[in-house]
Nucleic acid binder design. Structure first.
Lengths: 341, 341
DNA sequence: TACTTTTGTTCCAACGTTTGAACAAATATA
DNA sequence: TATATTTGTTCAAACGTTGGAACAAAAGTA
């Protein structure tokens, strides 16, 4: 009741008849403070329900203990479990995590970066929006000397730490699997090739086809936003071809799902007529009928490494910029949509 | 190159030969500052690439412009779109949003609250973990006078603003629909009844059965965590009953999905043999075969109202505590899993 | 006993911003 | 012209914490 003034170290100091700085030192386990005083301070702090003022200490120390995370959207297994892991690790080290979503929009992403910088975060962990081509805002972060770690969606030009999977290899694994299943005409529904990861998947797809002496046909390679409806539309166009593919490798599960729907509508047998492989191993991929084969990207691993890379960077800021580029091995989860035998 | 000292208002002041306080006032559009000075300040600020130090102003003003959000997990359509909306609205008002996940754990939730309080957030918007029964931490937030708004998962005992849907009514709508489809023996896979929303769904289910003169049988009402595997296990136990239900109403889509899987495995025709209705309208619900009927909870609406309620609360903190309890109408999306005719 | 070292504390300035009071100059009012 | 008002700025303290320098007291060393 009445007015609730917050307890400060000054209040504690007054109670004990010592100075605020002694209290501060006691609370921070300064080696020069006596055990007796430390205990007394702790006791009084508890009694008065003392809550340290983070803003004050952050201001004084020039360190906010806040870390910003930017993801395209939380609404996917992949990103939400990365975040879970990042939170986990950074919380243990005394950091709080601010999560923001770009919704795949460049503009929103810029605003997020602005907001994070404004909040004085100690670092930014980001996965770039599909739309993002200009890197000016990220360069600004770098210029300010704020540690920046990219994961999954990165850019080579940016010259920062990066954690992701080997997209090029993923495509190889997928094609190898499809070839094993006897497929000979494999289409690729990909993301836009201006995004590094999608470019690599496309490159991997082409190279793998070459490796297995399969023809590369431009009409079988389509770039898109990889939403479900994109998958639908592109699948329809593929079915309209005089010479249909016998397999489709989709660079995202949502689009794969759209493609699957269309094939079902056209009474095409999956995988007998056309085999299907997706990417990202979304929750639903194992749940639809037939279940969709997909590339698992080891999100926990990515989350863990991203957080650790940030911590490493913070620990030795002066360190010569030996970039941490960590590329994880993808894993293909084979399911009904591509299992012919 | 060299060392990068941050620009402060002092630097601006020096350039112009005025005092820092004049600069501050210019930047904050103080009415007493001359247009000439204001413009000069803005110009210099731009040239020096000035970035206001949020920590300092937050400390001085006793307001961090940070709002904490606690959700069980981001990995669902429902919560991620609520968050998107909250971010949207609060960003426009100059707030930054810190998102934390409890992973449905009481302990993690408490740690999140601690962390948010520590960060000096100006308010907390939360949806409680399933596990949470004790309200001590939330009471602490209230005691500190920090605005607290609950959404979706709330508690009446807590006496705070709340935004959610009418769970009791939802059950009525579901049962009415199932009765219309000719179902007579309707099971309910519910959440734990110590959670308000699940209690209400169960209550609504019971009352609706009564209304339609259907028998209430305890063996057809099972409480669980509503994960997919819970749905699977419970569905199996329901199928093991001597007298199987002809419809299952599940209080969450993940569990509904598990139930559906089991039914498919047992070659049960859905909806002919057993109709199925879920809850939350997750992404996958429309995508599986058969598509799952589900309750849509208007997440954007909830997000919007939650943010607005917070803003209202902040605007008049002294206001007599007339609680904002906003209860939205649910909507049943009828799909194949329950459409018999 | 005289000196050095260690221990426990106080002192004080700083972090960057804000804000009310004070003040001088310019302008308006009588 | 004298006085009141308005305008534009400076002054100084404050927000709560931190950490190095300073210092006195206690303990250790010769």
């Amino acid at each position: 009741m009445g007015y609730k003034k917050k307890t400060t170290i000054k209040d504690i100091a007054n109670v004990l008849g010592i100075t605020p700085s002694a209290v501060s030192k006691a609370l921070n386990n300064h080696p020069r403070i006596s055990e007796k005083t430390r205990e007394a301070v702790l006791q009084v702090a508890k009694n008065l329900n003392y809550q340290p003022n983070h803003l004050a200490s952050a201001l004084r120390k020039g360190k906010s203990n806040l870390v910003g995370v930017i993801i395209p959207r939380a609404n996917s297994n992949f990103f939400s479990s990365i975040i879970e892991k990042i939170e986990d690790i950074l919380n243990k080290k005394g950091y709080n995590v601010i999560i923001t979503q770009s919704n795949e929009s460049y503009e929103k992403e810029c605003r997020n970066i602005e907001a994070l910088l404004f909040t004085q975060v100690d670092g930014i962990l980001a996965s770039m929006a599909n739309e993002t081509i200009k890197l000016d805002y990220y360069k600004k972060v770098k210029a300010k000397g704020i540690p920046l770690v990219l994961f999954d969606r990165g850019e080579n030009d940016l010259d920062v730490d990066y954690i992701g999977i080997d997209d090029y290899l993923s495509s190889h694994i997928v094609i190898e699997h499809l070839v094993e299943q006897g497929c000979k005409r494999i289409a690729h529904i990909g993301g836009f090739s201006h995004t590094r990861i999608y470019k690599n998947r496309i490159r991997g797809y082409r190279d793998a086809l070459k490796k297995y002496n399969l023809p590369i046909e431009d009409e079988l390679i389509i770039e898109s936003n990889l939403r479900k409806k994109d998958g639908r539309e592109i699948m329809k166009s593929l079915l309209a071809l005089p010479n249909r593919p016998d397999a489709v490798y989709v660079a995202g599960d949502y689009a794969a799902l759209g493609a699957l729907e269309v094939m079902k509508e056209y009474s095409i047998k999956v995988p007998q007529d056309i085999a299907l492989v997706g990417f990202s191993n979304e929750t639903f991929s194992s749940l639809v009928t037939p279940s969709i084969s997909s590339i698992e990207q080891h999100s926990e691993q990515i989350g863990k490494l991203t957080a650790q890379t940030f911590l490493k960077r913070i620990a030795n800021p002066e360190e010569k910029v030996t970039l941490n580029k960590i590329i994880l091995k993808p894993e293909l989860i084979v399911r009904d949509s591509s299992r012919k035998k």
